[in-house]
Design a protein around this nucleic acid. Structure first.
Lengths: 224, 224
DNA sequence: GTTTGTATCCTTGTATGCAAGAATATGAGA
DNA sequence: TCTCATATTCTTGCATACAAGGATACAAAC
């Protein structure tokens, strides 16, 4: 609270909107309005605009000059790019992580995996998502590359919307199995194995893409 | 011109400031003021603030609430992270590029290298920088990963300030030699060689870091 | 001389006003 | 009924006003 009371209204707007977009609470291709968002967030248009400006730079919203704001559709090109970035970075990360050994962080990773199983049991995609996120961040920490994680997080946002749809249709168990193998490889100092497991793991989202696209065509960019 | 008249004042501010920061025209640790920047750019504070907000998200400026804006110092941690990101992504890029063959793009790459030699002859770091940038972008294009380039560009900005100082102290010839080897490896479809040459190439900046830091201590973050 | 308390100034953070341009509705003509 | 021109409405982009909180200068006490 002490922290949160210190962040600016603009920052608050950014975080809230960013979360609402990634969590699909604001739907791709949905038109929104600065005024409406301002009212929703209880502030004036100025901090909202600052947030939208940043979100636009990330291509999470499309600002059409003097014509309106729309939540960016899921763009296949953006997904492909995000996938590339994330895959290369996280493969390198876990390979480095395999060379490290920090019992405390490893414990955190295993706990996160257990929470994921709990999330499956409770059928809570939200909880799963959160624990998944935390676990990937911990691998970065294990590799001593914590600040790379925020970078990956940015790149990930477009993909996360897909993951959200994918997880809702329920493949969480496969992902946990990946996580387990990944953790074992890292714990066994098997850099190669960790990297290839990570690659396999991250590419699963793409497998579901055609299905998801068929199920939610309104969320995707009009095809070229 | 037709294009430029259409971009918003805020976007103009962002690009101008971003360039001035990376080119060291605005010096690390230098205090600036919204009002002063607004006057310099010929607009009001509002678009300047929007630009500063984005630059702050990239950690290129530090906003101290109600106390002032300062150009971010060169942070060793940020440099290390940018280096990691760039290295992993560009290694993967040239490895993919080696599997492609597009005479037109390869020609563009070779032309860019020739311009770099011209830049050395004319002792123009500006020209060198520009041609270097273009060449790296062309490798992305060759790999069919053009949109990854903008991603790398963002990550690169902190490092670029170092490169700027490094190039001024004149190691451009070594870099061109790297570029030539890199291009030959790619043209010869030697993915491994291209990747390792890229790694070597990108790590050169770090070699100069201690010297640069000694020469320009006022540009760096106060040590921890 | 050093330090501490205070008052002033200065800078940013947010709200609001206004104008320019896009989207939409309206109406006439075919 | 469909098309096209036009008027209207609505939304954003930028400028400005104001307030809250830091930084600074200065004076007083030790």
């Amino acid at each position: 609270m002490a922290q949160e009371s210190k962040i600016s209204a603009a920052e608050h707007c950014y975080r809230t909107l960013s979360h609402k977009i990634v969590s699909l609470e604001l739907k791709p291709n949905e038109p929104v309005g600065e005024q409406a968002l301002a009212k929703m967030l209880g502030v004036s248009r100025t901090p909202v605009r600052e947030a939208l400006s940043r979100l636009s730079a990330e291509r999470l919203v499309d600002l059409r000059a003097r014509a309106g704001v729309i939540i960016a559709p899921i763009r296949l090109d953006a997904v492909r790019t995000a996938q590339f970035v994330r895959e290369k970075l996280e493969m390198a990360i876990v390979a480095e992580a395999a060379a490290q050994s920090n019992r405390r962080i490893l414990l955190g990773i295993r706990q996160a995996i257990e929470e994921q199983e709990l999330a499956i049991y409770e059928n809570s995609p939200e909880l799963f998502f959160e624990a998944d996120e935390r676990m990937h961040g911990l691998f970065c920490a294990l590799a001593g590359r914590e600040s790379v994680w925020s970078f990956i997080s940015d790149a990930k946002k477009h993909m996360d919307r897909l993951r959200k749809l994918s997880i809702q249709s329920g493949h969480m168990d496969v992902l946990v199995e990946d996580h387990r193998r990944l953790t074992e490889a890292v714990a066994a100092a098997d850099a190669e194995g960790a990297a290839s497991t990570m690659q396999l793991h991250l590419r699963r989202v793409l497998d579901d893409l055609p299905d998801i696209r068929r199920s939610f065509p309104q969320f995707f960019e009009a095809e070229a």
